[in-house]
Amino acid sequence: QTQGRFGVEISDPVEKEKRVNELVQYMLIMDQKKIPIKKRDINRVILKGQNRAFNGVMEEAAEKLLEVYGFKIIELQDKLKDSYILVNNLELNESQKKLINTNQKDNAEMGLVFVILGMIFMNQNVIHEDEMWHALKKLGIFQDDLHSTFGNVKNLIMKEFVRKGYLRTELNTSTDPPTNDIYWGQRAEHEITKRNMLSMVCDINETQPSDWTYQMQLVMQEDQGSQQ
C-alpha cells in the first residue's frame, strides 16, 4: 500500500512545474544558512499539504539543481533523516575554483572548520571536547572568551558547526562531568574527501600521507567506495 501513498503525482503538469521551480528556488534560498533543509518544511512551504507528491516534485527539482546549477542534493541519514543538503557537483580545476569567491566571514569560518575536521580525522576520527579546546588555544581560541573574528566561538563550534552538519557531537558519560566527543558531521563527509584532508594536513605538519598508516587506510577505503 506504500506504492499508493508515496507515488502520487500532481496531475496538472503546469501546476507540477510550478512546484518544482518553487522547490529549486526554496532549496537555493535555504542553502544560504547551510543548515540542512527539512522535508517537513518543504511539505509545509512548497507542497502546502500535498505531501504525497513529495517524491515526484523532489526528483525533478534535484534534476534541475544538477542540470542548471551543478548542485547535488544529498539526503542525510541517521538522526538527520528527512533533511537535505546541497553540495557542489562541478569538477573544477584550480583556476576555475578561483572564480568562485567567498566573503571574509565565510572564509574565516571555513578555516576554523578545517582545523577542527583535520584534528578529528588525524586523531582517528574522534576528538574529546577538552582536547580540542586545549589545542585551539595555540590558535588564540579560548572556549569562554569572545573571539575578535568568531565572536562567541564556543557557540559557533558546538552549536553552529553542528547545526550546519560539519560536526557531530556525542555526550560521553564515562567522564565526570560528561563531556562531548566530536566527530565529522554528515556535511563534512560529503564536502571533503579524506584524501584531500590528509594531504592538506600533511602540507601543514610537513609529513607525507604515507607516514600515516591508519589515515591512509581510510583514504583507500574511501577510494574503493567511490569506485563502486
Binding site: L28, I29, D31, Q32, K34, Y69, F71, L86, V87, N88, N89, L92, E94, K97, K98, I100, N101, T102, Q104, D106, N107, A108, E109, M110, G111, L112, F114, V115, K137, K138, L139, G140, I141, S148, T149, H190, E191, I192, N196, M197, M200
Partner: peptide
C-alpha cells in the same frame, strides 16, 4: 607567542586556501 593565535586576516587566508578543496556551494544573495 601561542596566545596571540591567528589574526583575522590569517583566518581569512587559511579559509581561502582550503575552501577550494571543499565541495561547498556558493549561495544566492
Amino acid at each position: 607567542k601561542e596566545n596571540y593565535g591567528l589574526s583575522h586576516d590569517d583566518w581569512v587566508k587559511l579559509g581561502r586556501t582550503i575552501t577550494p578543496f571543499f565541495r561547498s556551494t556558493p549561495v544566492l544573495n
